[in-house]
Design a binder for these strands. Structure first.
Lengths: 334, 334
DNA sequence: TTGTAAGCGTTATCAG
DNA sequence: CTGATAACGCTTACAA
């Protein structure tokens, strides 16, 4: 059996209270006994049980992270960033990948509550407001990551999607483009916001947003391929395309090659997220980068703050995306 | 505050023992009180604290998963598969991404022990045998996933890498190829095994394995690019290349295009892992698929079994990979 | 400076 | 069938 605090106490001829105190550096204890206890702990390879600690101390130092799909490169990056932050702060992460299924999300939420996690980070599109309200009522601190929902008053840390779309639109216009198509995920609020920002940029640059052809596709290979081909067959083919995810854009590039359309010579494309797809595709994909590391650290900060002070006002933090220039957009202006 | 078993008991005018019994369906209790208690639990939205349960019952229903990098598509898939299995079996997963750093691995291992996880799945290359022995001594069930180490006698579930390499080699030979290069990760044991199998296949097909040019590269974009270009500049350029990861192969394909070398017309390539890179690349990458879902379910099974019976003999399970044919290999035989 | 004892939310063993 | 009560490993007043 693993040694307990009692084993250490017995071996050191002190009480468990004393051991506890040297463990937590609380109270006052003589250097001598302190060292003795420390020594013995080392010898026995004593590790305090955080289960027991949690039962008394009320904290588990564990937080739950809900993502729709950990195999999606964006969320994988997110998970890595969050986990990194958590580790540095002494927390560990229970990973919950809902596979876009509401039921799993519910199950996980219940599970996390049972496990007494100190907080929850939600990166799945909030469909069931009730359930989330529940969390709030149960005093489980919770922050929404890169998703938003006005009906909820929980903390939110997100990329400024409108601005991201705007950046994409403005960039394309500045490169001399005037006719556009957009491929977007209709279910995701972020997708809609990105398109909104995109159109706003066009308007500001004097292009009629109504002329933009919007095609809907989930961020899956097959759907993206279909959407791409739809664009190649248009009679008035646009000179530039805005895809609201890198996966869609990467598939677009390959589909273009297959259709005998050259990127960026015949058609330009800009993506969103700056995942590995953008880096690996050929030509390299110009894209809007979400500041994942920053998002993650702000998220953890919000979460920990509201663990400390559950009554704190709910902030909505919106971080600016940036444009990463590669080779998928042609300059038509010169 | 969240309701406890005492709240339920008081409300129902029974003892906590009774509540506990209806909760676990143990002992005998009248339908009537049972229903009463059940009702009240529902009303109060009572969730038993699994922290308290863990303290008595000795099980946390949590397992730790160590991966080198969750943002690597292969490990992301692995995490998803493991997590899926775990969820179905009532376990949750603490995700630990070590970023290939030994120190982090140590820290995580200590953490997991403190958290009293019921078991640990290790998918990182075992560098420090001592630490793992420790786990064994501390009676923490543990299974190695897709890595192996003869010095360890823990459970192992892995792909038959030698066979995978063999499949790749045989396939290329059957397609009429006779001159080869290999790009492999030298640090990973799996990389070495894959190459070994590859050479074995060549030998069986009458090709001298000594003629194979082996180039080393980590599975990173930059290194893969370098390795690819090295091959394009060879005076005796091979007709086929075996890359021990899909990422390397995907980068190779793009580098080829940039170098004016056509895949598969001028040179053929075969990858390993069947990640999203293989699917998305153009041309589609012929590759060796690891049976991730199966690996995951066997792993969980081994782990749970050895949680039940810590003394069980340590199995080494090796699952067969399969070849997934796409368009990156040219048939030279006809 | 150190020790005693209550309490955290369960489970499990006995009695009743 | 139901209820006291000890035990799990630790923290934290409060005593000594």
């Amino acid at each position: 059996m693993k040694p307990t605090i009692y084993d250490v106490a017995k071996e050191a001829n002190v009480s468990i209270a004393t051991v506890s105190k040297v463990l937590n550096n609380t109270g006052r204890i003589s250097e001598k006994t302190k060292n003795k206890v420390l020594d013995i702990m080392k010898n026995l390879e004593y590790q305090p049980s955080s289960v027991a600690t949690a039962l008394t101390g009320k904290k588990t130092f564990t937080i739950g992270v809900l993502v729709p799909d950990i195999a999606n490169p964006f969320f994988a990056e997110v998970a890595r960033a969050l986990e990194n932050n958590a580790r540095e702060l002494g927390y560990s992460i229970i990973l919950c990948s809902t596979d876009y299924q509401l039921e799993r999300e519910h199950d996980y939420l219940d599970l996390l509550i049972k496990k007494q996690v100190d907080g929850i980070i939600i990166a799945t599109e909030p469909k069931d407001v009730k359930k989330l309200r529940n969390l709030h009522d149960q005093n489980v601190p919770c922050v929404l990551f890169s998703v938003d929902h006005l009906a909820l008053d929980s903390h939110v840390v997100t990329t400024d999607d409108i601005r991201g779309g705007y950046l994409a639109g403005r960039y394309l216009c500045q490169k001399g483009h005037r006719t556009f198509a957009v491929i977007t995920e209709p279910q995701r609020a972020s997708g809609r916001l990105r398109v909104e920002g995109f159109k706003k940029a066009l308007a500001d640059e004097g292009v009629n947003p109504a002329d933009v052809q919007v095609i809907e596709a989930k961020s899956k290979i097959e759907e993206a391929k279909l959407a791409a081909n739809q664009i190649f067959q248009m009679e008035k083919r646009p000179t530039a395309v805005f895809a609201t995810t890198d996966l869609i854009a990467a598939v677009f590039i390959n589909a273009a090659r297959k259709a005998g359309v050259s990127v960026p010579n015949d058609i330009s494309i800009i993506g969103f997220d700056n995942t590995i797809h953008a880096e690996i595709s050929d030509p390299g994909l110009t894209t809007i980068a979400q500041p994942i590391a920053k998002l993650a650290s702000y998220t953890m900060e919000q979460l920990l703050d509201s663990i400390e002070d559950p009554g704190m006002p709910t902030n909505r933090i919106m971080l600016a995306p940036t444009l990463v220039e590669r080779e998928s957009v042609k300059d038509l202006s010169s």
